[in-house]
């Protein structure tokens, strides 16, 4: 409810306008940076033609894909096309770069949404419970397990999980997409690390919040109702938690390359790493822009959440 009130206030509208402009500036900066930096990784021609290809066919290839022009010319042409929302063609897939990226992003977005929802709910619940009795049995177990979970390499967990749960036990499919069952392993593997991390941050800031002056005051005043103390403390503890959630979600939106690679999940991370290694610049740029746009939107949401949670913050 507070959110609707919030959106109607004039200050937030100017804030949103300013942020839109600021984001556009960062996006342009990002495009320039990625365009020129990715060009530093060399000429793609040799990658696309057989090693035995003649000098003439190499020239031809460069000509077709506009790689012969000086960089500034290529950049101007790219920006011109971009204004018409033309993201260029993928060299590797011979299709519009944006198509490749959006197809992958659709999967990544679903994966990120499911994983982060589960992580957020679980981490906040478990983390707060652990903080309520610091050093208690529950706290120790939760901390220990979450730390171990957060410290194991995900590709290792993924391969072991496939061997154990798919081959030996036959509970879930090894990889791929298709049914609900196919989502279980990738989501579980992706869940582990952000869960361990966010749980720790929730626990940490809950401890601080619970020992802060006003909670102590509340307790001293005789407010024995645990839920009320809990909600008060949580509200205060959430600020740093949200930042970390945002960071983790951004990581997922950028594509969970390892998990996507191992499970054959057709997400944007896989599209991006392939494009980077194959010097398919148009796809790299399109992927960067799409994910950046999503991340900007998410950061905006986070800033709004800050203001909702802590009315003292004004933009």
């Amino acid at each position: 409810m507070s959110l609707t009130l919030f959106a109607e206030s004039p200050s937030i509208r100017t804030f949103l306008g300013k942020r839109a402009i600021a984001s556009a500036i960062s996006l342009v900066g990002l495009v320039i940076l990625v365009f020129f930096l990715s060009r530093l990784t060399g000429d793609p021609t040799a990658l696309y033609l057989p090693v035995d290809a003649s000098q003439e066919s190499r020239e031809q290839f460069r000509e077709i894909h506009g790689l012969n022009d000086p960089l500034p010319v290529q950049f101007a042409r790219y920006m011109g096309d971009l204004l018409r929302l033309d993201f260029g063609m993928s060299i590797r897939r011979a299709e519009p770069a944006l198509d490749s990226v959006l197809r992958g992003f659709k999967w990544t977005l679903q994966l990120a949404l499911i994983t982060m929802s589960l992580v957020t709910v679980m981490a906040i619940v478990v983390g707060s419970l652990a903080a309520f009795r610091v050093g208690g049995v529950f706290d120790r177990i939760a901390t220990f397990c979450s730390l171990i979970a957060a410290s194991a390499p995900d590709f290792w967990i993924a391969i072991v999980a496939i061997v154990v749960f798919s081959v030996n036990l036959g509970w879930v499919p090894t990889s791929g997409t298709g049914t609900v069952w196919h989502w279980i392993l990738p989501v579980s593997v992706l869940f582990i690390r952000p869960f361990g991390l966010i749980l720790q941050v929730v626990r940490g800031s809950m401890i601080t919040a619970l020992s802060s002056a006003y909670v102590k005051t509340a307790r001293a005043k005789g407010v024995l109702d645990r839920p009320i103390i809990f909600v008060h403390a949580l509200r205060n503890a959430l600020l740093p938690v949200i930042t970390v959630i945002g960071d983790q979600a951004a990581g997922l939106l950028n594509g969970a390359v390892i998990v996507e690679t191992i499970f054959g999940f057709p997400g944007v991370g896989k599209v991006m790493i392939d494009a980077i290694l194959q010097r398919d610049f148009a796809v790299v740029l399109a992927a960067v822009m799409v994910t950046a746009f999503a991340i900007f939107l998410m950061n905006l949401l986070i800033d709004i959440l800050y203001a909702v949670l802590d009315p003292r913050i004004r933009y």
Binding site: S166, V167, G264
Partner: peptide, 18 residues
């Protein structure tokens, strides 16, 4: 035809009958 870049996964798929 499906695509998996990790060899262990490809071997596992045949072993699991997928």
């Amino acid at each position: 035809y499906v695509f998996r870049s990790d060899s262990a996964v490809r071997a596992a798929m045949v072993a699991a009958g997928e």
